[in-house]
Simulated assay, not measured.
Amino acid sequence: METKNPHASGAGASKVLFETNAKEATATRAKKPVLSAFTDPRHRVVIRDIGGMFQVTVEPEHPAHTPETYATYKQARGYAGGLRMVNRWPLQDETEASL
């Protein structure tokens, strides 16, 4: 029986091509990144409200990340979120804005 789809005759060939490309993509997929030397499970990112300003610190103290102070919660949370994502440290929010 003849089909109305002009591409139906080559469907088998495209399926093989698709499967081959899928295998190559799986073989070349990036592996999970290895944790850096700075990543330590003891560290955590802490946000505190100090006199109307917001301070972001890493505890225990980390030489590459000194305490930073921001005027708004949004700025502090953005910086803290970046530290959390890059270093895989947990985030501890001790401000009233988080409630």
Rank of each mutant, 00 (worst) to 15 (best):
E2K: 02
T3I: 08
K4Y: 10
N5Y: 04
P6S: 00
P6Q: 05
P6M: 04
H7T: 14
H7V: 12
H7F: 15
A8L: 10
A8Q: 08
S9T: 09
G10V: 11
G12Y: 05
S14P: 09
K15V: 11
V16H: 08
V16E: 15
T20A: 15
N21L: 15
N21A: 15
A22E: 09
A22D: 03
E24N: 13
E24F: 09
A27L: 10
T28V: 14
T28Y: 02
R29G: 04
R29V: 12
P33C: 04
V34C: 11
L35M: 12
L35D: 08
L35W: 11
S36I: 07
S36Y: 05
A37F: 12
F38D: 10
F38R: 10
D40E: 03
D40T: 02
D40Y: 01
D40N: 15
P41S: 00
R42M: 03
H43Y: 12
H43T: 13
H43N: 09
R44T: 02
V45K: 05
I47A: 06
I47E: 04
R48I: 07
D49W: 13
D49M: 09
D49F: 10
G52Y: 05
Q55I: 01
Q55T: 10
V56Y: 00
E59L: 10
E61G: 14
H62D: 03
P63F: 01
P63D: 00
A64M: 04
T66H: 08
P67T: 03
P67Q: 05
E68H: 12
A71E: 01
A71Q: 03
T72H: 06
Y73N: 01
K74L: 09
Q75H: 04
A76G: 07
A76Y: 05
A76R: 07
G82A: 10
R84H: 12
R84L: 07
R84I: 03
M85L: 14
N87E: 06
P90M: 08
L91V: 06
Q92F: 14
D93Y: 00
D93K: 01
A97Q: 08
A97H: 15
S98R: 13
S98Q: 11
S98A: 14
L99T: 02
